[in-house]
Simulated assay, not measured.
Amino acid sequence: MSTFNGLPAHVLLVHFIVVLAPLTAVLAILCAVWPAARQRLVWLVLTLSLIVTVLTPLTTDAGEWLEHKVGRSPIVHTHAELGDTMIFFSLALLVAAVLLAVAHVSAARGRSLSTVFTAGIAVFVVVVGVATIVQVYRIGDSGAQATWSQRA
């Protein structure tokens, strides 16, 4: 997908990632540290993480199309390189959500996981969540620099 209604698809898709990835990360962290939140939000977190994982390659592919249209500059190249790393963060967020779902289902069935394993899941989710938020910021900032620094 290169354009949507005459606009570059990347410009539209990137807004889903910019909103959904940090939102999913924050909700996942909340689920990891607060069991009551996990009971209510775990399936939403799993669904959102799956959506982010599917949208990420679509967004980067649309970005590569746009990169060829606007021309390659060092700042656009930097943004593209950072954008290509987002799939790793999306996949890690999906793994974190799956682990939260496993912990939730185990607890619901009365077979709670060991305290060490549960703590390990919480640490993993927090690290992945924070890293995802930071990476989305870095990618977004480089994209804004690529877009607006050439127009100033």
Score class of each variant (00 low, 15 high):
Ala62Phe: 10
Gly71Ala: 08
Thr132His: 00
Ala131His: 10
Ser106Ala: 10
Gly140Arg: 06
Val126Gly: 00
Ala119Glu: 11
Gln145Leu: 15
Ile139Asp: 07
Leu27Gly: 01
Arg111Ser: 05
Gly140Ser: 04
Arg111Ile: 09
Ala122Glu: 04
Phe124Pro: 02
Leu100Ala: 00
Arg138His: 10
Cys31Pro: 09
Val134Arg: 03
Thr115Ile: 11
Leu55Gln: 08
Thr118Lys: 03
Asp141Gln: 15
Ser149Cys: 12
Val134Gly: 01
Ala37Ile: 14
Leu113Pro: 01
Ala97Trp: 06
Leu58Pro: 04
Val45Phe: 04
Trp148Tyr: 12
His15Met: 06
Thr85Cys: 06
Gly140Trp: 12
Cys31Asp: 05
Gln39His: 13
Ile75Ala: 05
Leu94Met: 13
Glu81Thr: 11
Val127Ser: 02
Val70Met: 13
Pro57Asp: 07
Leu50Arg: 10
Leu41Cys: 07
Glu81Leu: 14
Ala101Phe: 06
Ala80Cys: 11
Val134Thr: 02
Val26Leu: 05
Leu66Asn: 07
Val123Tyr: 04
Gly71Arg: 12
Thr85Asn: 08
Gly71Phe: 13
Val45Arg: 00
His77Leu: 14
Leu66Cys: 09
Leu91Tyr: 12
Val19Phe: 15
Glu81Arg: 11
Leu46Asp: 02
Ala101Glu: 03
His10Arg: 08
Leu44His: 02
Val123Gln: 00
Pro57Thr: 09
Leu7Thr: 14
Val33Asp: 01
Leu41Ile: 11
Arg111Glu: 09
Ile75Pro: 07
Arg109Pro: 01
Ala32Phe: 01
Leu82Glu: 04
Ala131Gln: 11
Leu20Met: 12
Val52Asp: 03
Ala28Asn: 00
Ala32Ile: 06
Ala108Leu: 06
Leu48Glu: 05
Ser106Lys: 08
Thr78Val: 13
Phe124Glu: 03
Val45Asn: 00
Ser106Asn: 06
Val128Trp: 09
His15Glu: 01
Gln145Trp: 13
Ser114Asp: 04
Ala25Trp: 06
Ala25Gly: 00
Ala28Gln: 00
Trp148Lys: 05
Leu55Gly: 02
Lys69Gly: 10
Pro8Tyr: 15
Ala36Asn: 10
Arg138Asn: 09
His10Pro: 11
Arg138Trp: 13
Leu55Thr: 04
Phe124Lys: 05
Leu94Lys: 03
Ile139Gln: 09
Ser149Val: 14
Ser114His: 01
Lys69Leu: 15
Gly6Gln: 10
Arg72Thr: 15
Phe16Asn: 04
Thr53Tyr: 12
Asn5Cys: 14
Gln150Pro: 12
Val45Leu: 05
Thr60Ala: 12
Ala101Gly: 01
Phe4Leu: 14
Val14Pro: 03
Gln135Trp: 15
Lys69Pro: 09
Thr59Tyr: 10
Leu41Lys: 02
Ala80Gly: 09
Ala28Leu: 05
Ser149Asn: 13
Thr60Tyr: 14
Ala144Phe: 13
Val134Trp: 00
Val42Trp: 09
Ala119Gly: 11
Trp43Phe: 07
Val52Arg: 04
Val128Cys: 04
Ala25Lys: 02
Val105Asp: 03
Ser49Asn: 01
Ser106Val: 10
Val45Lys: 02
Ile17Cys: 11
